[in-house]
């Protein structure tokens, strides 16, 4: 009996203890955000590193997602002679689901991994302790700038992915698949609502918070040595990605209740 229950109890204990660590870091970050003097130089550096340096990969992915989604939708809609519905289908899907999810997963991999690895290395080489010894709280100096960096950058990157995806879909639809450009744009404008974009950007904000808190927590609590840093990095990406997908489902349900008249 114990052989069966012990691993389950251990896993549950580990999960709850990590959840507790994450929650206390989240509270400490919120507290620091609103009560401490911000380190502006660090914040601008993080906005540049997270936002500006992620643009290329986000735009590239957004473009290809827009193109392939446009083609798939067109092939299905063409069967029932609804070619002109391709535009709105692509834009709504991009705004509500595809752009925030894809941007979230890309940033979980690119930025989340970098944050966990950097903070993990700082922890195991006593740099985090050095910071504390120099009378600087690690949450103020390390976590808050990254949080602001990601929370500011992620909605902008998502908006960029939506825009680039729609432009790419328009080009594929009109130049390759023969959809009338006027119909494509008219129908897209007619059926794509302001709330679709708002829903996507709100999701991006939530995903940014998930990525930064999970990755910072994994980095700051990582185990000793190179193995510990590697494990923390891997876990940051996996946990952030899974949490984004789970959160997306619940946010979609909540928004559908809130934003549907």
């Amino acid at each position: 009996m114990n052989m069966l229950l012990d691993p389950i109890a251990n896993t549950a204990f580990r999960f709850l203890s990590e959840l507790g660590e994450w929650w206390s870091l989240t509270l400490e970050t919120l507290r620091s955000l609103f009560t401490r003097r911000p380190y502006f130089r660090e914040i601008f550096t993080q906005i540049y590193l997270i936002g500006a340096r992620s643009q290329m990969v986000v735009c590239f992915t957004g473009a290809f997602i827009g193109m392939v989604f446009c083609a798939q939708i067109f092939y299905q809609f063409h069967k029932v002679q609804m070619d002109s519905g391709t535009g709105p289908a692509v834009s709504i899907a991009l705004a509500r689901e595809l752009a925030p999810i894809i941007t979230g997963l890309i940033l979980a991999g690119r930025v989340g991994a970098a944050i966990a690895a950097e903070l993990g290395t700082m922890r195991v080489t006593e740099q985090v302790d050095a910071l504390r010894a120099l009378a600087v709280h690690p949450v103020d100096y390390l976590v808050v700038p990254r949080t602001i960096g990601l929370v500011v950058s992620m909605p902008m990157l998502t908006a960029e992915a939506i825009l680039v995806g729609i432009v790419a879909a328009y080009l594929v639809g009109t130049q390759l698949l023969g959809i009338d450009g006027g119909y494509f744009l008219n129908n897209m404008e007619k059926y794509t609502k302001y709330k679709d974009v708002v829903a996507g950007l709100m999701k991006a904000l939530a995903f940014a918070w998930i990525i930064v808190t999970v990755s910072c927590n994994k980095g700051l609590t990582c185990e000793e040595g190179a193995e510990g840093v590697g494990k923390a990095t891997m876990e940051a990406v996996v946990v952030s990605s899974v949490a984004i997908l789970i959160a997306n489902f619940f946010i979609t349900i909540i928004f559908s209740k809130l934003l549907t008249p």
């Binding site: 700082m122 080489t125 006593e126 740099q127 302790d129 050095a130 910071l131 010894a133």
Partner: peptide, 12 residues
């Protein structure tokens, strides 16, 4: 307090 760490712990 000032601390000199064993491995210096400089910010790399």
């Amino acid at each position: 307090i000032g601390i000199l760490f064993q491995n210096a712990a400089l910010f790399d």
